[in-house]
Nucleic acid binder design. Structure first.
Length: 694
RNA sequence: GCGAGGGUGGCGGAAUUGGUAGACGCACCAGCCUUAGGAGCUGGCGCCGCGAGGCAUGUGGGUUCGAGUCCCACCCUUCGCACCA
């Protein structure tokens, strides 16, 4: 969906720093390619509710990213060069309209452009804004600056003249590229108005009162009753929005509107890697799509990037081509697609990798959606949202996967694995040194005080802790663990170290414990194979084993695999406590091996077969706890006095409240703490504790 | 700055979701065994205290018979912020 744009065009700002500042694109018409993800904003938002097996955290982030906000689009009339115009703004706080004391527009807004032509100072400021930060994170931190444009607009309800400023905190890409400023009830407007001495008019009664003295307080922005608003005084937020929208509607100067934070997805990249955009630019036919029988457009492989601009532009044999429509000389598009494009549908493509006539075929209908998707939490928004968009677009455009709206049924987002990073800048350029090659010195609190490269003792700079990445050369290679301990130990340790959703500072210092455990399993199985087992069952050990199994099965459901690994360890410890070999040993070992099999498949497979428990452990039924083994006729209760632990009692399973209370009072240590005081209240929590309040 | 996570012993982490804080491991300490130990076994191991006991889950408040868990404020930290360069 190519959209022609000009860097200086007013209607639609081009996002991205390369566009604004790069000499490459200055003053040139640029075809830029977008995917219309905004057309799906509503659906992508609504469908989040139908993803029960996605983490709430991820759904919330997507919701905020899509950013649906309901408000009012309203107009401030003005005249420019004698022509009647309207400055449109979007606001979610129409209730504060009577408090608007000025308007602010983005540097790309027509009013800014108009004023820039008349006033070189404004032109300079507008240029400065355009060259400045465009990334949200940078934008939020820059100092708020502005200049009056000299243009005045009319307040749609009061008829007051309000000045229009151009301000660097107004984004052309959101809403109308212009805002009404209500300094009394908006933090940014407050800051701006305070700085430039613009009037601040309170129109909402907030929890701190009716005035808004500096400094800014969050309460000023709260919903409240209208004041200083003429006929609207006394209305609450919703009543005020409705009334004001109605007033504006009558004048044709406003209506309720839904705005989205989500923007269309600009996919053009001036990079070598990425799929070429299959368009040919013909002087007579315009932009012509490359016909199906000439697809795919292949990237040249004889190219040496020199670090400036898009290297594809420097390859005439790639650029020069014929127009597919008229056959005359034409230029091939050299933009390539964002790599997120590829990652948005590879999973569907994996269903039919040898299909060479279409994106996907009927095999995708069968396999999709992906049952369980696993990826890092860093993909919570972009990759996962683009994929959800692509899935919808693919079913509409290819006729495949009808009715499959969502690509991933279940989602597990791993935490990031973090590591320290170090660099030297001896050569003037940062050279990243792998943590494995660095020796560190720490203070008593474990903070790094100095670090050197182990090989030659040169000092290196500690750059803090963060995600493992190629660019910072701070990755660790699991192959070392596999070579030293074997794949089962490496797997077991990885599972045991922390729950998969946690961020983890990698350390393999404690891997020995996992190795020891697996050796002990092997050893236990060996001894079992040579033992004569009695037929008897040990009730206590059986209870422990089946309790652990029950918990472990719950934990698998909750995707907490570290406690499953520790349950395996506890089961082996319980088995080791058995005085003699009996039926409990056999049952417990069979449970242990199956529970352990996904974590240490090689070892358990071998033992299962070696013990003649069966052929293939992967095909065995998953172990379930025996309810009979979980029965207990006596339970232990904790006794507290004033919430502090003072003792414990054993009570029959069926004991009633009165009996429990009596036993609790009879406990000698409890008596010591109750002695001579009134028991005002007794709290009995069945199966847990008794608390005597004195 | 905004959005979403996280903060519990020397370390990784556990805590049945408001009910015995520190499971299971690592490291450490003591003892046993051994010609030897970077093997194995037994025991100990949050902090203060001889002890009874007291204090402890980032900080400060609050709710509750009872708070790691709920509420308010703050601090630190990780991920994302639209081109992973």
């Amino acid at each position: 969906d190519p959209v022609d744009q000009t860097v200086l065009a007013n209607e639609q700002v081009i996002e991205g720093r390369g566009w604004r500042t790069g000499a490459l694109v200055e003053k040139r018409e640029i075809p830029m390619y977008f995917f219309r993800i905004t057309a799906y904003a509503d659906e992508l938002l609504a469908a989040l509710d139908q993803l029960p097996n996605w983490p709430e955290q991820v759904k919330l982030m997507q919701k905020n990213w899509i950013g649906k906000s309901e408000g009012v689009r309203l107009g401030f009339p003005y005249s420019l060069d004698g022509k009647a115009q309207t400055l449109w703004v979007f606001t979610t706080r129409a209730d504060t309209l009577l408090g608007a004391t000025f308007c602010a527009v983005a540097a790309e807004h027509p009013i800014a452009t108009f004023s820039a032509k008349r006033d070189p100072k404004i032109a300079a400021f507008v240029e400065e804004c355009k060259k400045g930060a465009v990334m949200e994170a940078e934008l939020a931190q820059i100092e708020k600056k502005g200049m009056p444009t000299g243009v005045f607009v009319t307040h749609p309800l009061t008829g007051d003249k309000l000045p229009v400023w151009v301000a660097n905190y107004v984004l052309m890409g959101y809403g109308e590229g212009a805002v009404m400023a209500v300094p009394a009830h908006d933090e940014r407007d407050f800051e701006f108005a305070s700085k430039y001495g613009l009037p601040i008019k309170p129109v909402i009664r907030h929890p701190l009162g009716d005035t808004v003295p500096a400094p800014w307080k969050a309460e000023y922005a709260e919903y409240g009753t209208l004041i200083n608003s003429g006929q609207h005084d006394g209305l609450n937020y919703q009543q005020a929005v409705d009334a004001i929208a109605a007033d504006l509607g009558k004048k044709g100067l406003g209506e309720k509107q839904v705005q989205w934070r989500l923007r269309d997805w600009g996919i053009s990249r001036q990079r070598y890697w990425g799929c070429p955009v299959p368009i040919v630019h013909c002087p007579s036919c315009g932009d012509v799509p490359v016909p199906d029988d000439q697809l795919p457009v292949r990237l040249p492989e004889n190219l040496v990037p020199d670090g400036t601009g898009n290297p594809l532009n420097k390859l005439p044999e790639f650029v020069n081509t014929q127009c597919p429509s008229c056959g005359r000389a034409a230029k091939r598009e050299t933009d390539t697609m964002d790599t997120f494009v590829d990652s948005s549908w590879y999973f569907a493509r994996f269903c039919c990798p040898d299909q060479n006539q279409a994106m996907v075929d009927e095999r995708a209908d069968y396999w999709m959606p992906v049952d369980q998707y696993i990826g890092g939490i860093e993909h919570a928004i972009l990759h996962l949202l683009y994929s959800r968009f692509f899935q919808r677009a693919m079913s509409e455009e290819t006729g495949r996967m009808q009715g499959i709206k969502e690509p991933f049924s279940r989602l597990l987002t791993q935490g990031m694995v973090l590591a320290e990073s170090y660099y030297t800048d001896a050569s003037g350029r940062r050279e990243w040194v792998n943590p494995a090659d660095v020796t560190v010195e720490r203070d008593a609190k474990g903070k790094i005080v100095s670090a050197k490269r182990t090989a030659d003792g040169t000092a290196v700079v500690y750059d803090g802790i963060g995600t493992m990445s190629k660019s910072k050369n701070n990755g660790v290679d699991p192959q070392k663990l596999i070579d030293q301990y074997g794949a089962d130990t490496a797997r077991f340790y990885t599972m045991f170290a922390s729950p998969p959703t946690n961020t983890l500072e990698w350390s393999d210092e404690s891997v020995e414990g996992s190795f020891r455990f697996l050796k002990n399993v092997w050893d236990y199985a060996y001894r079992f194979s040579r033992a004569q087992c009695k037929d008897s069952l040990d009730r206590k050990v059986r209870f422990q084993i089946h309790s652990e199994l029950k918990k472990a099965n719950d934990d698998i459901e909750r995707q907490k695999f570290n406690t499953v690994a520790s349950a395996c360890m506890k089961i082996l410890n319980a088995l080791d406590d058995l005085e003699e070999w009996d039926a409990t040993s056999r049952e417990g070992l069979a449970i242990l091996l199956r529970l352990l099999s996904p974590i240490a498949p090689h070892l358990t497979h071998h033992l299962w077969r070696g013990l003649k428990f069966g052929e293939d452990i992967m095909k065995e039924k998953w172990p379930e706890p025996d309810p009979a083994a979980l029965e207990q006729d006596e339970i232990e209760l904790v006794v507290q006095v004033n919430g502090k632990l003072r003792g414990s009692i054993k009570v029959p399973k069926a004991a009633d409240r009165a009996a429990i209370e009596e036993l609790a009072r009879a406990n000698p240590n409890v008596q010591r703490f109750v002695a001579g005081q009134n028991v005002k209240k007794v709290v009995v929590v069945p199966g847990r504790l008794v608390n005597l309040v004195v």
